[in-house]
Design a protein around this nucleic acid. Structure first.
Lengths: 208, 208
DNA sequence: GCTCTTACTGAGTACCTACTAGGTAGTAAT
DNA sequence: ATTACTACCTAGTAGGTACTCAGTAAGAGC
């Protein structure tokens, strides 16, 4: 008298690429909510309609899942930002610097971020969590910080006295406003708040 | 042939208040490193030279340990900030507003924060982690954010057009700079960085 | 010296953690 | 139709999680 026939295969079997997309999407949402330390493979598997070993078949380990999520976001971000700025696909950072000013770029970034709070939250949570040198994304976020500042600086190159410092300030202000916005989206309109403060930072910026 | 005589009582037995102080200190450090989700009671107990049940005897549950840490920090912060601003002990926020300006207060806060990176990191990590409504410190940090902004606003009351917005901006910029500083303390001097940006925010501030 | 309180321990519970080994079945190419 | 591939499963491991219970000993008051 068996309790049950083994009812395997009641959930759909997806091609690897598609399943991977789903896994990354679910993981993105869950890390945004709980951070990487708070994330469990069981939760991800449940969210995908898989067992945990089924999940591990696609991603290997928890750490490499995090890496996959971050790489995917980087690509998506670069693509969407380039198009938001109206630049053709293969535009390098230096080419961009000639075509678009820092204030313009910031406005575009803020507008895009305001439309995807979940992604912003993913980065906000991981940015803080990864301050720990033992965190699997520690190096990634250190590099990301430097890269972001350098990109901002390159857009201000030759137009202000100290582009790197300005880049830092821009990044700091954006990050800080984002936290407040995430905690109380009703009260704070991110785009409006940025429009209100940013002129103070860009006071020395020509024609801005 | 027993492996060992039960060598109980080889560690010192402390009075409750002192032990509690130690527990809070250790927990503060560990949460700053790993966040609350990444914190284990075992780690805290080890850090105090206790067993886990010994630790629980003092704090009850993990959640209430977090609450204790936050309450303790609030008290310590209020005390140290008041003295840093040269105010007598029982000074209320409204009294303070007459005596010290927002730029002065900010400079004092930044100076103090620069001297205690571990505490700043505790708040930075928890601030992000607690964006999740299920986080045990969610309500605490929502209230803290409102309170901080209100305090800043009260110090600017009557001197600028929109004190609350200025308060928000000040908090955002401080938080953002702090993250960068925590990730790379060698490169960024927090006090100098604040001194460099804050005038931009305080441009409309009288005599500042 | 005795009693009372309490800081603390050892042992255990029920459950969750990432991860592995080995197998099964759906699918596509031949 | 058979083979090869692979998406996914069941079962299990070794270890961690917060937390409980019942008891013991250190120290304070008498």
């Amino acid at each position: 008298m068996k309790t049950e026939p083994p009812r395997r295969r009641d959930r759909p079997r997806l091609p690897a690429a598609e399943r991977r997309r789903q896994i990354i999407e679910v993981t993105t949402r869950l890390i945004a909510e709980r951070g990487f330390w708070g994330l469990s493979m069981q939760d991800v598997a449940d969210g995908c309609g898989l067992t945990v070993p089924g999940l591990l078949h696609h991603v290997g380990t928890k750490d490499s899942l995090l890496v996959a999520v971050l790489e995917h976001r980087d690509q998506a971000d670069n693509r969407s930002l380039a198009t938001a700025l109206g630049a053709p696909e293969g535009t390098s950072r230096d080419d961009l610097a000639g075509a678009v000013s820092l204030p313009q770029a910031c406005a575009a970034i803020v507008r895009r971020n305001a439309a995807q709070p979940e992604i912003v939250r993913l980065f906000t949570v991981l940015e803080a969590e990864s301050l720990d040198p033992d965190h699997p994304a520690h190096d990634y976020f250190k590099a990301r910080q430097e890269n972001t500042i350098a990109t901002f600086a390159s857009l201000a190159e030759g137009r202000v006295a100290d582009p790197e410092t300005l880049g830092r300030q821009v990044m700091a202000l954006m990050d800080g406003l984002q936290i407040q916005w995430l905690r109380d989206p009703e009260r704070l309109d991110l785009v409006a708040a940025w429009a209100a403060v940013s002129p103070a930072l860009f006071a020395a910026f020509p024609a801005g």
